[in-house]
């Protein structure tokens, strides 16, 4: 495996659309539940161990070589919010475009042909990792990190939070990110029925509320 390939894939500048999404942080800020670095850390930790773990395991499973279409179905069942399913597929389609330009592979082509409107983003990311010669833990790391870096970046813009504080939040979460990635990869090795389905009620509820806002800064 190439460690540098992991850096390319995990880079926030990887052109796959993530910059327009707050990972639920925008409604949390609007409702006053996230207002400073401490509440951002709490938000990120909660998201990491719920939606983050679930998504990381899907990505690890795709990187491991499990059937991406079955994983896409498993992702649907784990995403009761239609707003979040739409977001996941939209980002999956954008990730697919970037992936086929960076690490083209027949497996990516096959998934793109089977899901022209986009598969769930973690599944596409896992397959991208696989095409880049990366492993399940790498894919899980990428997704787990995205789960917290997206909200942190968004909160810097939404609250004008000191970017050093926001980045420090991410740095302090690093050991937990490692554990979640390991846990996700371990589950993926045991097959699709062992994948976690950890969920966060408030993320699901507020995603629907946010999708109906007439004016918002972030797409999700």
């Amino acid at each position: 495996m190439s460690r540098a390939a992991l850096l390319v894939l995990a880079d926030g500048r990887f052109p796959a659309g993530g910059h327009a999404h707050s990972g639920g942080a925008e409604p949390a800020v609007a409702e006053g539940r996230v207002r400073d670095a401490d509440s951002l850390a709490d938000f990120c930790r909660g998201r990491l161990h719920t939606a983050g773990l679930t998504a990381a395991a899907l990505a690890a499973a795709a990187a491991h070589g499990l059937d991406p279409l079955a994983l896409d179905e498993a992702a649907d069942a784990r995403t009761p919010s239609p707003a979040l399913r739409t977001t996941a597929r939209k980002l999956g389609r954008q990730m697919m475009r970037a992936a086929r330009a960076t690490w083209p592979s027949p497996e990516l082509d096959a998934l793109a042909a089977a899901r022209p409107r986009g598969a769930h983003q973690p599944v596409v990311l896992g397959l991208t990792a696989r095409s880049a010669g990366l492993g399940p833990v790498d894919a899980a790391h990428c997704v787990a990190y995205e789960t917290v870096s997206g909200p942190a970046t968004a909160v810097v813009r939404l609250l004008s939070l000191d970017p050093f504080h926001a980045t420090a939040v991410l740095a302090r979460l690093a050991p937990e990110l490692d554990r979640v990635a390991e846990q996700a990869a371990e589950a993926a090795r045991q097959g699709i029925d062992a994948l976690p389905a950890a969920s966060a009620p408030l993320l699901d509820i507020t995603a629907e509320a946010h999708a109906a806002w007439p004016v918002r800064l972030f797409a999700s």
């Binding site: 639920g24 949390a28 539940r33 996230v34 509440s39 709490d42 938000f43 990120c44 930790r45 909660g46 998201r47 990491l48 161990h49 719920t50 939606a51 773990l53 937990e176 950890a198 966060a200 009620p201 408030l202 993320l203």
Partner: peptide, 12 residues
């Protein structure tokens, strides 16, 4: 339970 379960992303 994993951290954050009572935080702003999960139960608030």
């Amino acid at each position: 339970a994993p951290g954050g379960w009572d935080g702003p992303a999960v139960l608030g």
